[in-house]
């Protein structure tokens, strides 16, 4: 009732190739759901005691992370077989209109932001379900974050995140130097009454939704830099 339009339950009738993928997909998601309490505890521990020495897998040397990064690149990006394209402008026109509606539908800016965030969460969650069909379950948080930076971001914007930094204690900073959704907005960073933050809030929700599908609960904040650059921090 509350969700009348269903989720990503695409019927496998359209493309025969898709059928064998359906089963592993379900399996993966259920496994990640079972794993999630462990991961969540781990996350909350990090957040509670950000300065204390860590015990989990966070003390990962940079060298290993680099090799992992390489392997992630080499694996083919698992595109859904039936994926098709639309014009970027088509989505952008719609996106502007959607944000406009949501901002006007609530008197309170904070409420509107929450709504945008929630919508983003739903979309991110479903999108990643499809994108990760062929990806094995992530054993580490970093792997999941890399998936977001590469595969997920690529599916959304045809580019990957420009820079990923982490303090190895559960905080990740993703920066996108040319954030697509801000490209065509006239934006003055010095202006105080009109900012473009509402256009980024949705993307925060997307990341949150995607991470939650991997079983990680996170908080995403963002920072707007000049020249359409955008940074996301999450814990």
């Amino acid at each position: 009732m509350s969700d009348p339009l269903g989720g990503t339950n695409r019927s496998s009738t359209s493309v025969p190739n898709a059928t064998p993928n359906v089963v592993p997909n379900i399996a993966i998601s259920s496994i990640s759901a079972q794993n999630s309490p462990i991961n969540n505890n781990y996350i909350t521990d990090q957040v509670k005691t950000p300065t204390s020495s860590t015990s989990g897998g966070t003390t990962l040397p940079t060298s290993t992370s680099n090799t992992n990064l390489g392997s992630l690149v080499s694996t083919a990006i698992p595109h859904a077989p039936a994926s098709r394209s639309i014009a970027i402008s088509c989505f952008e026109f719609f996106y502007i209109e959607m944000v406009d509606y949501l901002m006007k539908s609530c008197q309170d800016k904070v409420k509107a932001y929450k709504k945008l965030d929630k919508l983003g969460f739903k979309v991110g969650n479903r999108l990643v379900e499809r994108l990760s069909i062929e990806t094995p379950l992530f054993t580490e948080l970093l792997e999941a974050v890399k998936f977001i930076c590469k595969v997920f971001w690529f599916a959304l914007f045809k580019k990957s995140i420009d820079n990923l930094r982490t303090n190895h204690k559960g905080v990740f900073v993703l920066s996108d130097k040319q954030f697509q959704w801000l490209q065509h907005l006239s934006y003055d960073p010095n202006s105080t009454n009109k900012d473009c933050t509402e256009y980024i809030q949705f993307a925060c929700g997307l990341i949150k939704g995607a991470m939650s599908n991997f079983g990680y609960k996170c908080t995403v904040t963002f920072e707007l830099l000049q020249n359409h650059a955008c940074m996301y921090k999450f814990y």
């Binding site: 859904a80 394209s85 719609f94 739903k122 479903r126 599916a155």
Partner: peptide, 9 residues
């Protein structure tokens, strides 16, 4: 771009 983002949004 991929249409899925648009469809889901």
């Amino acid at each position: 771009i991929n249409s899925e983002l648009f469809t889901l949004t």
